[in-house]
Amino acid sequence: MDIASLVSCFGSAACVVTQVTSGLIIGMLLFLVAAGLTLIFGVLKVINFTHGSFYMLGAYFALTIFKLSDSYVLTLFGAAFGTALVGLVFERLFMSRVYGQNMLMQLLVCYGFILIFDDVVKIVWGAEFRSMGMPALFQVPPIFVAGGVVPPFYLFLVGVTVVIGGLLWLVIERTRFGKIVRAVAHNPSMVSVLGINTGILYGMVFALGGLLAGFAGALAAPVRSLTPGMGFSILIESFIVTVIGGMGSIVGAFVGALLIGLIRTFGSVGFPLFTEGLMYLFMVLVLIAKPTGLFGKEIA
């Protein structure tokens, strides 16, 4: 424990700026993955354990598209829509068969596909770790804000994620599609009685989840090593985020992800040996105080 450092950090603008921005970076990537996870749970009532694999696929798609096109914009969209397509196919062919069934059955299908996706990545891209490299546009020195360091790429990453989060909220809260999605989450049989094809809707929600995870993977690819199995650690953290925020709540995922990001960055200053533990401790405290999570009542 190093409380003195933590106190002195809060006393210095440079430290606060650096730690808050790095908290945002960690949080925003988590939010993208957790948002898809929580959306799928909210609507379909299944916990999509393959969600980490979608993130991994997004990163590997990015690797290939960037290599071929050298355009990061194309890379982001290509990876996101590629992963969305994988999500759609996976839902229509496999997940749709286990809705309403035993939770263990769903778990088994998901776990099976985690292994399959990992092996597919090994076959296509190889078992060794890979690196995409930073797009030339962002190979610039960091910006200094009040003495704190802010890399331009991370500014871009946070900006894009906030825009996506806003769009997602608008789609769910303010559009007809969003209304139907919320209705399905609430009462699927009533919605299907009204003549809406819930099967297609489920597929679209899954694709949207895949889109978000794939986008997160493509955003992470320039700065993280790509390995088969890389989806697993982000899956665990995304679960923590959704549990803290409340299963099924997108606003909850946003707040939860931000909190986890900040806990990690300030935790590493004040509790360097207990940063990981801090995250879990916080989750335990939230669960004791509010078992449904911070925004648990709200559904999608």
């Binding site: 950090c9 650096t18 790095s22 960690i26 990537l29 993280r224 650690s233 960055t265 590493s268 360097p272």
Partner: peptide, 21 residues
């Protein structure tokens, strides 16, 4: 100072900013 990221950690941002501090 010492930083001990865990094995196979995907993100080192908090470690890097600590070094910068």
């Amino acid at each position: 100072s010492e930083a001990w990221p865990k094995l196979f950690q995907p993100d080192y941002t908090e470690v890097i900013t600590k070094i910068l501090q």
